[in-house]
Design a protein around this nucleic acid. Structure first.
Lengths: 221, 221
DNA sequence: ACCTGAACACCGTTCAAGT
DNA sequence: ACCTGAACACCGTTCAAGT
């Protein structure tokens, strides 16, 4: 029944998922669902559990950086199959078992790589939801500008937001078109991940050479 | 009326905000709200606009890193005053004017600091919602464990999730208590921000010395 | 033309009536 | 004891009836 709910959300989106519609989907009377879940929140908890369970436990490999990177990208692949899961997981107040299992294993990869518990803690916070493969993008710019946008509107936007326009244009390396092709989500995700992992690596090295002194990035300015 | 809606959400949370209750709050008949906004989505758009407008435009200062850091932390201060704004902003499909103004100004700070449009683009993506002061935390662990948790449950958790337990313990530097005091959100936010900014700085330096060659972090492994 | 109450098509969940 | 339909207390929004 949780599987059915996940399939429903995959198909019609989580905003379309109501207890009544899910019951209809299962050819069951609405109140019958309450035999399996306490309420809708519990249903959503269960759905998160199913999805995160699909990720499996990140496996240690020779090098911590590679292992962490692979774990995160594995999580990302699963969560891209269930687009709705991001918002739902984020709305949970309490972590579920599968999430705790995953996080525990990820921390283990850092620890095995020689990170102190303290640096590990910071690193997990710095990754934030990226550890589960989420990109916290402000807006989806992967599709670029709507090709139907009238040219005068494009010009007006470029005038008001020159820096944004420059970036949108820069993303399109084929000249001629004013409208960028949008950018590669996966590449941007990996860029950010690698910047963070490189940073962690430097802090770990500093930590190991300095002994007990606290490792921290420079405070800008 | 947007102000009233913002105040309502600040007071009672955005989940309590309905058209009917907001109308009641304003001592007005529900349908009267539709004179000011097309529908509830437009109301939420307007509320985001008010909040993001409070941030103002990030000012350039001598050094790009300091300017970006200050801009982000200014945004964070505003958004901590309106806790609900994070989820609402994230749920918008289309960026609003105030957000575009802010993003445009932030990009300007990078550009003025000598970043190529391309590196700038990656950096903005890597910051993600952090550019507006959001931490995409998976769960709120800032309160630590509930002190009322029975010791046998704490032991069971520590057995099942040893790495998580170690981190939770490590965060409490005063010994004696099994229950950590939780961690400092602001410090974790600044840690992650500084790791990213340091990473951007290194890539910018590499970019400037290498000329046209593409700057990218190492791919782990 | 404007305002607004009732109504519509939904929710999640309670509860009592049926078996 | 279990199941389930009707009912309750909400939504956002439409629409027609009032002025």
């Amino acid at each position: 029944m949780l599987r059915a709910a996940v399939a429903f959300a995959d198909r019609d989106g989580v905003e379309a998922l109501s207890m009544r519609r899910l019951a209809e989907d299962l050819r069951v009377v609405p109140m019958a669902l309450y035999k399996h879940v306490a309420d809708k929140e519990a249903l959503l908890d269960g759905m998160v559990e199913v999805v995160v369970g699909e990720i499996g436990t990140p496996a240690p490999s020779g090098e911590w950086k590679r292992a962490v990177r692979d774990g995160v990208l594995a999580a990302r692949r699963v969560l891209l199959r269930h687009r709705w899961a991001y918002a739902v997981l984020e709305s949970r107040k309490t972590p579920t078992r599968a999430v705790l299992d995953y996080l525990n294993a990820m921390i283990g990869l850092f620890r095995a790589g020689g990170f102190s518990a303290d640096l590990c803690h910071h690193a997990m916070h710095a990754l934030g939801s990226r550890v589960l493969g989420f990109t916290q993008e402000l807006f989806d710019d992967s599709r670029g500008l709507d090709p139907a946008t009238p040219p005068e509107v494009v010009r007006e936007l470029a005038r008001r937001y020159p820096h944004i326009a420059e970036i949108a244009l820069g993303a399109s390396h084929d000249a001629g078109s004013v409208v960028g092709p949008g950018c590669d989500d996966q590449a941007e995700f990996e860029f950010a991940l690698d910047v963070l992992l490189d940073g962690f690596e430097r802090l770990r090295e500093r930590e190991m050479s300095r002994g007990s002194r606290r490792a921290a990035p420079s405070r800008g300015g």
